[in-house]
Computed example of a mutant assay.
Amino acid sequence: MLSDFPLLLGAGLVLLGIFFLGFLSLKLNFPSVILYILFGVVLADLLSHNELLHFASEIGIVLLFFLLGLEFSVRRLGGIAKKIWPSGLLDIFLSLGVSMLIALGFGMDLFSAFLIGGIAYATSSSITAKLLDDKSRMANTETEFILAILIFEDLIAPIVIAILIGISTGGSFEANDLFLLVGKVIGLAALAIILGKTLFKKFDDLLDKVEDEDFKIVLLIGIAVSYGGFALYLGLSEVLGAFLAGMMLAEIAKIERVEQAVDPVRDLLLPTFFIYFGTSITFGDGIPMPLFLAVLLLWSIAAKIIVGILGGRWYGLSKKVSLRAGLSLCARGEFSVVIASVATGAIKVMGGIYIVAAAFLGMLLFERAPAIANKVYGKKKPKKKDLKVPGE
């Protein structure tokens, strides 16, 4: 019986599945993330309540964003924040606002329309960050813009979730609640900055004193998980907390030592997040509201491409790089799953199908983004150098 299925056996099968699917993705040159999600969907009945898998997935996603945060010092993040807000507001209007209007046009009530807008709003931070890393695009011109949009969405999405949960449980979400949420975000960021400038200012010296690599790993993962958990305790995203934890250490002299210590653990545990994500999606019987689903899917992809094209230009990117950024923002994921869980009946089933389809199409567009941008704007031709012949 499934209820008697040991947690440890499930964990072992998941690890073997990760090896096989990772190996298969390399042979087929196909995104491993898609295979991991589908693996979770197939084994949903078996793994949906596996606490070990859930715990591993949380650690994996926290470490991913901890390492991302290491790339952003306070000064750099402040400069990005000044440039990203127009693009972030455009994203809210197109991805959330217009999606709501489409839902209302199909006869949905205001709450259901807001719920649909929430599902369609946030790009999957985990999928996008993983693909940036896998495809060696972390150093690309558009990556800073993409990560800035993801961070902006990670600040807005918890507010959307809090409003939806407040309404769906029969409660109310008042202006005071909104101010409280914003205050928590500001407080969490301020604390990270203070700790980075005080407690972690001499962190290099501490790492030099810890000779055993295992203890370094425990220390660094403990910092990442603790701050991510503190964000959860405040009712915010663990992803945001982990990113801020990385930012606290971003100004130490030898940042590569931190990355080398955490990278192997991140690489081991991160696939479990996508598998667990797959187990959270239920399809039910058939596809409800197929026309609405198709329209929402097409618009939500178009909206992110527009955000990239217009927002990227506002951010200072070229037309070609802006298009590449927009094509890389289309995957939906973890926040959409959380918001879809608030829904009931046909909307919940449709939300699950939408998330899988948007994740799949978003990853394919991410893969093809450089090629599509080259086709639209052409490849940059190398400048010819005037070679002088000796004796001329």
Rank of each mutant, 00 (worst) to 15 (best):
E211M: 11
A357T: 13
D212Y: 10
L232C: 03
P86S: 10
G316V: 06
A359K: 06
G311W: 04
V349W: 03
I146L: 10
G12Y: 03
L364K: 10
I223P: 08
F19I: 12
I151P: 06
F215V: 12
I161Y: 14
G107S: 10
I217L: 15
L155V: 14
I84A: 08
E238M: 10
D214G: 13
D177M: 12
S237C: 04
I305A: 03
T169M: 11
K384H: 10
F66L: 03
S336W: 00
V33N: 01
P86F: 02
F179L: 15
G117Q: 01
E392I: 10
G284Y: 08
P288V: 05
G118D: 00
G235I: 06
F273G: 05
A250P: 09
I159M: 14
D91K: 03
L43Y: 11
I159V: 15
I275H: 09
Y276M: 11
F55V: 09
F203M: 04
V210E: 12
F243T: 03
L110F: 15
A250E: 08
I339D: 02
N29V: 10
G22C: 07
I305V: 15
D45N: 15
L296Y: 00
A302H: 02
S168H: 13
I305S: 01
I372C: 09
L28A: 13
D205S: 14
L24V: 13
G284M: 07
L38R: 08
E174W: 11
V337P: 00
V160S: 05
D267H: 03
I59E: 02
G351F: 04
L21N: 04
L297G: 01
K388T: 13
L132R: 06
Y233G: 05
V295K: 01
R368Y: 15
L178A: 14
L2S: 08
N374C: 08
T169P: 00
L240V: 12
L361I: 15
D204H: 04
D214I: 08
L327G: 06
K320A: 11
V14W: 06
G170A: 05
E392G: 11
A11I: 12
E211L: 13
L104H: 06
L16F: 13
L155S: 07
L115S: 02
D212C: 01
L219T: 06
L63T: 05
V356L: 15
S328D: 03
A358F: 04
F273I: 03
F335V: 14
R75E: 15
G308S: 04
S48L: 02
V307R: 00
